[in-house]
Design a protein around this nucleic acid. Sequence first.
DNA 1: TGGTTATTTGGTAAGATAGCCAAATAGCCA
DNA 2: TGGCTATTTGGCTATCTTACCAAATAACCA
Lengths: 105, 105
Amino acid sequence: MSTTKKGKKIDIQMQTRLEARARIIKALAHPTRLFMVEELSQKERCVSELTEMIGSDVSTVSKHLSVLKNAGIVQDQKKGSQVYYILRMPCIRNFLVTFKSVYMV
Amino acid sequence: MSTTKKGKKIDIQMQTRLEARARIIKALAHPTRLFMVEELSQKERCVSELTEMIGSDVSTVSKHLSVLKNAGIVQDQKKGSQVYYILRMPCIRNFLVTFKSVYMV
DNA sequence: TGGTTATTTGGTAAGATAGCCAAATAGCCA
DNA sequence: TGGCTATTTGGCTATCTTACCAAATAACCA
């Protein structure tokens, strides 16, 4: 019969959506980048400010920012010789709040 | 003066919490594991059912499940010769719902 | 223009991840 | 017990990730 409880196989569209979600989640999956997202959800920060807070090499910080930018999570804006970053989707704060309430970490 | 707008450096406790969050998020950061979490938030499934849906080698599926288990996201329960998995924190559904509403993917 | 600061990019080495196959383990039942 | 099914684990390889340093690029200002 056709009304069993068997789960459906993953189809192409589902696979595509899962990959899109995973790509974004993967961009969040690093302590430094989580910190950046939290910080940038409060106020914009330039690379050197973030570098000072984080304490890694500035090139490392810059690369983390580009990971977030490529995932569409933050955006940058040049101001003179500095580059300021800010959350592109402010509603991601809800996401993190939910996350913290779920996991209590 | 001491009332500048400088951001604070990350302290040890903050670092520890960021790492804990990143560890959990990293466990979610794979299309197959996202699928598992969604599926297991609906109903429990055994390894062979998931394998059938996912279409990878059963050893690959088993390893993905152990990643989720080690992160505390799912738990397993033996029933005869089969191992059933289920979401350990059902509230993670909210997390995914929020995520999807934020990112629309 | 030349020097200085801010940021990004290239290169590279160490470590982590993901997939498959093969082998080990566990439970079932004839 | 022996054979079967379900699952996990070990081994291996290819690929990705991260961190740092060095070098390239961009903007400013003296």
